[in-house]
């Protein structure tokens, strides 16, 4: 059952992400990306990382994808994206090569198989409890730093995107410069 679930998720995620990468329509791409993210949380649940799975759902699907969808309202996302692909062969060569190399690396027996376990889960605790214990004891400082980072990012996002929000894009002329520059 677990095996079946893994392969199901694996194949679906790969397919969805492939759609994201190859789709010409930005909406399709985003939708398939969001779907892929949801399925990845499924993988996390299989692995027993319940808390991570939930976080994946909330942050990625809930927050990040919502952010993308809102951002897309600023862009013209309805039509197909026209992209010039100068060397399509090269892309596949590089992508294929990287896949082969990484598969070779990971297919090899993991060298650190006998590596010591620094923070094994506490006996009898559920996954979120165990995660909480480690996160708020051993990783407290990085956690706080990450919090500050998120705050900074939030403010930066607001400032960057929110400036001159009151004027319509088409009417902003001062820093667009010569309209001929628009292509």
């Amino acid at each position: 059952m677990e095996t079946f679930a893994f392969y199901f998720f694996a194949v679906s995620i790969t397919a969805l992400f492939a759609v994201t990468v190859w789709s010409k329509n930005i909406l399709y791409a985003m939708t398939s990306l969001a779907a892929g993210m949801v399925l990845i949380s499924g993988l996390f649940f299989i692995l027993g990382a319940d808390f991570l799975g939930v976080v994946q759902l909330i942050v990625y699907v809930g927050a990040v994808m919502a952010l993308y969808s809102f951002a897309m309202m600023f862009f013209d996302a309805t039509g197909e994206i026209k992209e010039k692909h100068s060397h399509p062969g090269l892309v596949f060569l590089l992508g294929g090569l990287s896949a082969v190399v990484m598969v070779v690396i990971f297919a090899a027996p993991v060298i650190g198989a006998s590596a010591p376990s620094f923070y094994p889960p506490v006996e009898g605790a559920t996954n979120p409890q165990a995660v909480g214990l480690v996160l708020f004891t051993k990783y407290l400082v990085p956690f706080e730093v990450a919090a500050v980072m998120l705050l900074v990012a939030m403010i930066a996002g607001i400032i960057l995107a929110g400036k001159k929000m009151d004027t319509s894009i088409t009417e902003v002329t001062d820093d667009i410069g010569d309209t001929n520059e628009r292509i």
Partner: peptide, 14 residues
């Protein structure tokens, strides 16, 4: 593209 090329070269080397 150049960066990807470099990363792959390093990975192959590794």
């Amino acid at each position: 593209k150049w960066m990807a090329f470099g990363v792959i070269a390093l990975a192959v080397l590794a």
